[in-house]
Amino acid sequence: MVTSMNYPRIVEVKEIVEEAYDVKSIFFSQRGLKKPKAGQFFMIWIPGIDEVPMSVSFIGENELGITVKKVGEATAALHSLSVGDKIGVRGPFGNGFTLSDGDVLIVGGGIGIAPLYPLIMDLLNTTDSITVVLAAKNNKMLIFLDKISNILRRECDSLVVVTDDGSAGLRGLASDIAAKLIEEKSYDHIYMCGPEIMMRKIFDKAEEKGVEVQACLERYMKCGIGLCGSCCIGEYLVCKDGPVFNSEILRKLKDEFGVFKRDSSGLPIEFSS
């Protein structure tokens, strides 16, 4: 019996929560898996279909959760699961976020809020204040609003909701709202996950103001364990050196971060806004 974390552990789906019309959270038992850190990910195997990387979005005592947006065949298969169905879980992989103190800004764009949710739980114990910018295209695609309002209970914490079309909260782009906040306030640290162009814009602004960031990135992933190179960005691997990259590394990735990713063959695909 292989006990390695590089072998899928078969787990039963315990609970499914519909977060938005195209987003579901899937919960399963942590038994037999190493407890992940916020920002780490699992390779989720849907037998007979595919295996895809998924950030952990819920870290409980005995339960773990992932939050899945339906974008292709594998995620559609995850959406069609019912409680009691079995999936394979390999991991946790990657570095995860590093906790900081002081006043922090958190920017989650769309499904990008998923890995940030368990991070916020951890940061409540280490920070003086947390400002969350929760952004989506429109109110229908806004997820985790209740969850996040429920945990931001400290007086010092705040939540800013942003939608592209103004159907919920402020109207505008998350990157513009975040840039304004960075300009006006003095944050000690910024955490973000979401569309890469958004993250690049926020990173550039943070550089201008000298604020350190941690960005959670995504690339096409095959092995998940640092062997195949598919998820490369610059000379780094998202699966092993990431998925969370700090300012020091992002500065070396200016040619690629927010510029292009690669498809499964390794051909570059430019990000479009």
Binding site: E51, C228, S265
Partner: peptide
């Protein structure tokens, strides 16, 4: 020509090594 390779899982660890079937992915 570019080859996307096989769908995942493409690698698995066994007791004494790895078994992989990446499908020779490469950008051409």
């Amino acid at each position: 020509r570019p080859k996307p390779g096989y769908l995942n899982p493409t690698i698995i660890e066994v007791d004494c090594g790895f078994i992989n079937a990446m499908g020779l992915p490469n950008p051409g």
